[in-house]
Structures are given as C-alpha cells and as structure tokens.
Design a protein around this nucleic acid. Sequence first.
DNA 1: ATGTCTCAGGGACTGAGA
Length: 260
Amino acid sequence: MKLATWNVNSLKVRLPHLLDWLAATQADVVCLQETKLEDANFPRAEIEAAGYQVAFSGQKTYNGVAIVSRLPLEDAQAGIPGFADEQKRVLAATVDAGGTQTRVVCIYIPNGQSLDSDKYLYKLRWLNALHSWLKDELARYPCLALLGDYNIAPEDRDVHDPAAWVGNVLVSEPEREQFRALLGLGLKDAFRLFEQPEKSFSWWDYRAAGFRRNLGLRIDHILLSPELAARCAAVEIDKAPRKLERPSDHTPVVATLDPA
DNA sequence: ATGTCTCAGGGACTGAGA
C-alpha cells in the first residue's frame, strides 16, 4: 500500500498535477492540504473518475484538507474533537485494505507566521490539542498514520541553512518539542526509518529560485504507529511534481507499506 | 532581492497568507 501526503497549494490549480501523479504513481491513499476550496466546489467527479474515493473538509481561500483513496474510505471525521477551530486543518478516515483497517489522519498544522505572532500561540495550542487527541486515537486504532504538512522541520538536518533560520517559525524549539512529543506517543518518523540522501526537503520557497538551488525544508511528514512502522518498506520524497510548470511549493512524500 | 504564488474583492490592482 502506497500512502502519500501532498500540500497542493490550491487543488483547483493543481488538479491536473494530482490526476497525472495518481496515474503515474498508483498511490493508494493521498492526504492533501491547502485545497483552498469550499466543499461545494470540491472536484469530486474528476477524482472519482480516476478511480478514487474522496473525503474532504474545506473552506474558501485558506486551509482545507482531503483524503483520496483507491481503497474503501469510511468513518470520516473532520477536526479535533473538543477543540473549536474555524480553520479546516484535520480530517481522519479509515481505509480498508482487504480487511485490515488503517486510520489515516490528514493534518495541516498552522504555519505560525513569526515567533511573536498570535498565530504562533495558536500553532502551539493547536499542537497541544493534536497531541492529546492522538493519544486516544492511537489506543483506538493500533494501525494509525499521521500524514500532512506539519510546518515543522524536526532537526537541523531538515533545514538547508540552519543558521539562517534561527529565530523563525518552523524550526523553533517549542515546535520541535511538540514534534518529539508526537514521537513520544510511539509514532515513528517514517522517512528516518531508512537511509536518506543528505539535504532531503519537501518544500522550497517560490522566491529566489529556492528549488533550483535546493534551499528547502523537510516539513511534510508521515508518522506511523509501531504496527505500521514495522510494515514500512520504503519512504521517499518525489520531487517530480515540483519540476512541473506552475508547481505547488511542496512536493509529495510517499511511504510504501507491506501487506499486514 | 521586501525576490513568488494563490485568492478575494471587484471589475485594476492590492493585501493577506504562506
């Protein structure tokens, strides 16, 4: 089973890229972020025509998450229970892989803007809520995958120029602590289960030829519960979509799981 | 290089968010 995450930065603009990419990679489950679409405008028919089921939770202009799956998709739930949030950033659903249930949680963690911003406090509050909720979810679903745009580069090796990023969101110590707290629940950073090339990133700024110069960050992650981590055979960042015309600033991360 | 991209409002361009 191929599980992926991709911040598409507008699904309306990136739908052709998504459909091409699904056909090329035969991904089974893809978590999307920054769809930037109200649910009424979600391109359900186009994605279903490609052989995928969909679940989505969106809003106008900002945020928005979706899960597309070739396997049966059930029990979709939007948001973090008990955490009031206008912003559509969480969608969970159960994928049925031949009788084996996997809970897929798609997240778009707040960016935070800057360390002195209210949005940064919101990011930390949000991460706290995510952590407490996941503790319960993991007890309920031993096979759980948490995929998305975390807006956190967990370590300095996930940053093209750590010195240049000191004092910025995405690399600050409180955020990294929150990331480690998720690992503390037993989740594994699937990418780091394997030997990986140095300077592996999943996002590059549109400005300053960031992609061409590989000035990026690794902020899109796949965290797996122990049962799923044991079945994980490979994880890679697929840079191909970032090379297309009008790309998203993020590129997909893909995990391959062996059958249960 | 305050550099690019997307979207909404409104009907050209500006501002917000990332």
